[in-house]
């Protein structure tokens, strides 16, 4: 009876087992293929995640992640009460919102302009040139900024002088720091960031353009009513994503452009994490600050995604 029932149910346990074994045998090479990546990712992404708990402990290398004494919110409190909390948080927010507001529209405008421009050869030249700075390393970029902005020999000051102005010591003046940071970033990435919009524009059906022109639309109207709506979804998704990393503005560039004269505006959370954790070797305190940073990022991503999904019906998940 029992046996029969199993038979009626389709697969017997033995058969099912046989199938699992067969599938595993078939997929075995695939498991070998994914194994190295899994191991490396486990060690260098998952163990650090587990190690984040040192933010709540007094980390001691000999005792390890688990053995170090639990201190709860001690380091978070210390950070919230320190004068650096307000300074670094404010600097980070201003810098990244400034980058976002100035940096988002420019690649879009560039893509729109390139798409509307009919001389294809010249378009290619502009693309080739504007993509290039994206491959300059941060170190070289900052070195170039130091050279170009130098008050004695930099060409930017020479231009200012030839226009009748006076040479400015940009790097020694904290007031210029954010502008230098943001606009050099735009200079470097606008071409590269425009690719994705350019690709979205290439997908717009030419029929739409032709129909609009037949109806007497000017080129500007075509851009406003056809091109912009068609890349809006892409733009919003990218905007949501960059809001999610609002507190993780690049450590590298801020760190390299930092000097004692501009530390008041250039000390951001990530550079502070580096100084506390690596230079002063206070690992627990530093991890607490880093964890706070990630938490704010996650909250920002959720909030902005909510706004976008309510306002424009576009959501990441």
């Amino acid at each position: 009876m029992k046996k029969q029932k199993n038979g009626a149910g389709g697969t017997s346990p033995a058969k099912r087992k046989g199938r699992v074994v067969r599938i595993f045998k078939r997929d075995f090479p695939l498991w070998v293929f994914v194994l190295p990546g899994l191991i490396i990712t486990f060690i260098f992404s998952y163990i650090p995640l587990y190690g984040v708990q040192i933010a709540f402990r007094d980390y001691n290398p000999t005792l390890g992640f688990m053995g170090s004494p639990w201190v709860g919110m001690k380091y978070f409190k210390r950070f919230f009460e320190s004068p650096y909390f307000v300074t670094t948080l404010r600097n980070t927010f201003i810098l990244s919102i400034y980058s976002l507001i100035a940096g988002t529209p420019i690649p879009i405008l560039l893509a729109l302009a390139l798409n509307a421009f009919k001389h294809k050869r010249y378009t290619k030249v502009i693309q080739t040139v504007t993509y290039a700075p994206n491959f300059i390393s941060v170190v070289v970029m900052c070195g170039m900024l130091n050279l170009f902005l130098s008050p004695s020999s930099g060409f930017i000051n020479k231009i200012i002088e030839s226009l009748g102005g006076e040479a400015v010591n940009f790097m020694a003046n904290a007031g210029y720091w954010r502008h230098i940071y943001v606009w050099s970033g735009i200079w470097q990435t606008m071409g590269w960031n425009s690719i994705i919009y350019f690709a979205a524009l290439a997908n717009v059906s030419p029929d739409l353009h032709e129909a609009a022109i037949m109806d007497g639309a000017t080129k500007l109207q075509v851009i406003r009513h056809i091109d912009i709506p068609s890349i809006l979804p892409t733009a919003i998704v990218l905007l949501i994503l960059s809001c999610g990393s609002i507190l993780s503005v690049g450590f590298e560039k801020a760190f390299l452009l930092q000097n004692p004269l501009n530390a008041g505006v250039s000390e951001i959370i990530s550079t502070y994490v580096y100084k506390v954790g690596i230079v002063n070797a206070n690992q627990s305190y530093s991890s607490a600050i880093g964890l706070f940073n990630s938490a704010v990022n996650a909250v920002m991503l959720i909030i902005v995604n909510k706004i976008a999904s309510k306002g424009a019906g576009i959501s990441l998940y």
Binding site: V52, I54, G290
Partner: peptide, 8 residues
């Protein structure tokens, strides 16, 4: 995990 746990 962030900079420091990865470093460790």
């Amino acid at each position: 995990g962030g900079m420091i746990p990865t470093y460790l």
